[in-house]
Design a binder for these strands. Structure first.
Length: 496
RNA sequence: GGUACUGUGGCCGAGCGGUCGAGGCGCAGCUCUGCAAAAGCUGAUACACCGGUUCGAAUCCGGUCAGUACCUCCA
């Protein structure tokens, strides 16, 4: 395992803390996954990308990570005050299909999007509906400990009682007294003893398709419960990192903590991490705001707010250029900037593999090694990808200079060069998950282009500028960019 | 209304008391090049406002203004 010290901003303590796994080299990571009742949008992608980087970097550091990310396929009500319909069931009714068809459809869609953005699959992806028995068991534990009560086939968590012994609201900075006053009034809330209580089990209303038997009759589990249950089942009563979007901090994560403590007496999570929201043109991207962009729309550009399509890698890179805990405000311009910036970085990675080392001193050794170390240190500083990207650019300058100078590496020792090649590639590909997208895997095109470049080379040798420019201009119009190198060799690339 | 957080150059964004002030994009000049593109070098422009603490603040404290989020479905 690497000797690097990793610091994580813990949203529970609101401090940056040295990361010390409970059972090194093993790390348990739990992230709240999507509720699969409709398409994931770009904001969701940002969250899952954040924890993809966490997952990848922990592995880079040598940890053995068990990454659990759930699929919420039942229990998430339209209205989180524990009233209203189950989201999945509602969508099923609207589309006139089975709830499990809704689940299947959007789970597949979610996976497709994850694959597109090179977000790695988790180690375990459990679903709420697959853990009803465990959820019932946890409710029984909480009931036994006196922190829940039953009313008309519903089970509610008794927040006031809980608060007498344990602090409630520490994660989100709530004070129970204020919650009791300010939580809005709702019709049909009579079953609850207090406004701040939340449902552990909801009685199935008439006509519901999704329901399960329980000691309290037919019903469905509460939304917050699944995460408590599944994290405990796969990661234990206490595990290392729990992540999710900022908007889940309250009430979801707060309730999760209460449930775990209520069931087994101690807090479940060492380090809480929350990724911040994605804004578009200054407004939070949200399903209900109507400014959410679907990943597919981003790719095709088929959206009123977009001027053209942007690739998954462009989006991924754009997200990496900010810190996960900051709000990120994107626009057409920032997408465009990212597109260009990414190309520069990916090109450097490609060039690096084409360089030849010769022994010409090692006066740059310190500088290059320092830059490589800096990238790692940046990531160790609460996964600061924005800083790490900047440090990477310091290296691309050297790489480009060498590349332009007959592709010969000078000024660093062989050991440093080999380290640079290895680390640069690992960071770009394995940690950042960035790949070259315009891979010329079309051999026919490759052959044709080589022929054209050859003919053009001859034209240039004959100083037939009219012909060589015509070739370049017309290929450009067709989306193929020709670049003349200093050594007389030309190369081409496809325009996105 | 309550609770958090944020406010950095033309744009996006690091920065968490003291390496005279990341990085990307854009802009200007230069180098290379038949020209162009790419790349390299150089440069300009910043810390919302008003006070305070400090030898020293973008960075800490107080206030003002503005924005965002959560409190109600969302990652």
């Amino acid at each position: 395992m690497s000797s690097h010290k990793l610091y994580i901003y813990n949203s529970y303590t609101r401090k940056k803390e040295l990361f010390e796994p409970i059972h090194a080299p093993f790390v348990g990571l739990y992230v709240c996954g999507p509720t699969v009742y409709n398409d994931v949008h770009l904001g969701n992608v940002r969250t899952f990308l954040t924890f993809d980087i966490v997952f990848r970097f922990l592995k880079y550091l040598g940890y053995q990570v068990r990454y659990v990310r759930n699929i919420t396929d039942v229990g998430h009500l339209v209205d989180d005050a524990d009233e209203g319909e189950d989201k999945v069931e509602k969508m099923a009714r609207l589309q006139k299909i089975e709830p499990m068809e809704v689940v299947q459809k959007y789970t597949i869609g979610f996976h497709n999007v994850m694959r597109l953005f090179k977000i790695l699959p988790p180690s375990i992806e459990p679903s709420a509906s697959g853990h009803i028995i465990e959820q019932i068991e946890m409710i029984e534990d909480i009931l036994k400990n006196g922190y829940a009560y039953e009313v008309n086939g519903n089970i509610y968590f008794d927040v006031v009682k809980f608060n007498e012994k344990y602090p409630y609201g520490e994660l989100s900075g709530r004070v129970l007294e204020e919650l009791l006053e300010t939580t809005r009034d709702l019709d049909g809330q009579d079953d609850k003893r207090n406004k701040a209580d939340f449902a552990l089990w909801k009685k199935a209303e008439k006509g519901h398709i999704m329901k399960w038997n329980s000691p309290w009759g037919e019903g469905i589990p509460g939304w917050h419960l699944e995460c408590s249950v599944m994290s405990t089942k796969y990661l234990g009563h206490e595990f290392d990192i729990h992540g999710g979007g900022m908007d889940l901090k309250f009430p979801h994560h707060e309730s999760e903590i209460a449930q775990n403590i209520g069931a087994c007496g101690h807090a479940p999570v060492r380090y809480w991490m929350h990724s911040n929201m994605l804004n578009f043109n200054g407004k939070k991207m949200s399903k209900s705001e109507g400014n959410s962009i679907l990943p597919m729309q981003m790719l095709s550009g088929n959206h009123p707010l977009l001027d053209k399509g942007y690739s998954p890698m462009t989006v991924r890179f754009l997200f990496l250029q900010s810190h996960y805990s900051s709000e990120l405000d994107i626009s057409i311009k920032s997408l465009h900037d990212a597109e260009i910036g990414l190309k520069k970085l990916v090109n450097a990675a490609k060039y690096l593999s084409e360089l030849t080392w010769i022994d010409k001193g090692s006066y740059l050794d310190d500088e290059v090694n320092k830059s490589i170390d800096q990238v790692i240190n940046d990531l160790c500083d609460d996964f600061n990808t924005a800083k790490a990207v900047a440090s990477l650019y310091a290296l691309t300058t050297h790489i480009n200079t060498w590349y332009n100078d007959k592709k010969i590496v000078a000024g660093i020792s062989k050991i440093t060069f080999e380290r640079l090649q290895k680390e640069f590639a690992i960071i770009i590909q394995d940690v950042f998950g960035l790949e070259e997208e315009t891979a010329n895997d079309n051999t026919a095109l490759e052959a044709a282009m080589n022929l054209i470049l050859d003919l053009r080379k001859q034209a240039r040798a004959d100083k037939n500028w009219a012909l060589s420019d015509k070739i370049r201009d017309e290929l450009k119009a067709a989306g193929i960019i020709i670049k003349d190198g200093k050594d007389g060799q030309a190369s081409y690339e496809l325009e996105n």
